[in-house]
Design a protein around this nucleic acid. Structure first.
Lengths: 144, 144
DNA sequence: TTTGATTTTGCAACAATGTTGCTTTTTAAT
DNA sequence: ATTAAAAAGCAACATTGTTGCAAAATCAAA
């Protein structure tokens, strides 16, 4: 049994499912996410895959993946967008990532806590909530 | 009674309280925040005050204000840090902005909901929470 | 399997954003 | 008024993100 082949098959399936043609850069970048526990910033991806692909390609691939609901963005206080894989429930343009994100203040890794659901927030009368983003900062498993 | 003078006095007091010398750029930028309901992105500040000050001065002033706890940053999903005034409880380096932030999906304004406290989040055992950031997206007062 | 339309990539040029070192100016205390 | 310390301005640079277009890869058809 060849794990490499299986992963590659899963990647191809994901791309097909989203009506995306199967290209080297998409395969490579999607694989980076699958190999990864935490989330990835654009810079990380550029470093890891960047020798092989143009910067522009990385930007466009990430954009495409977000649009298709394959990955989602995670807001952070510093100026670096982070991306993480979506669960299957996500689809074109509409994300259902109602989970909490965790950023380690020590190692700076970002995690999706898929089992921790974002709470209801009581807003002042005049505001309507569409989506709630929760980012918790602290120490992760490995850092304490 | 001259409101302008009073505001200016309040600004000077804030700067003094934080051991900052009173300069034109600091006064101007602090005034922008006081005049403002919502939060300001760096770009906004540069546009509003930028004709008078160097870009670098704006960067350094914002950085100083954050360090002193006069303003705090607000995480967003797009790549633009936003800044808003801190309540008095904030001090050097340590912020106590345990309130929810609101971003209007229509007008893109960002608000501090000072009265809405961030909830407790139950994390998996292995994680330690230090700070919880909540950003709610939706429609603000003016946009619905 | 080859062909051909369509999509994606890479390149180049550019725009915007953020950073650093150094000189001049401003501030505030004497 | 003098002066040491702090901040602003300037220039140059680094990083990050965007756009248009030509070349290459993908995929569906014959």
């Amino acid at each position: 049994m060849d794990t490499g082949t299986n992963t590659e098959a899963a990647i191809a399936r994901t791309l097909k499912k989203n009506n995306l043609s199967i290209t080297e850069s998409r395969k490579k970048i999607l694989q980076l996410f699958l190999e990864q526990t935490g989330a990835l910033a654009h810079g990380d991806i550029e470093k890891k895959a960047g020798e092989k692909f143009d910067r522009v390609t990385v930007y466009r691939t990430l954009q495409t993946f977000v649009e298709k609901g394959i990955i989602h963005t995670i807001p952070t206080a510093d100026n670096s967008i982070r991306y993480a894989l979506c669960k299957d429930a996500c689809s074109d343009g509409h994300h259902h990532d109602h989970h909490v994100h965790f950023v380690c203040t020590n190692c700076k890794k970002t995690y999706c806590l898929d089992d921790v659901v974002t709470p209801e927030i009581k807003l002042p009368k005049d505001y309507t909530a569409e989506q709630v983003e929760v980012v918790v900062e602290g120490l992760c498993r490995d850092c304490r």
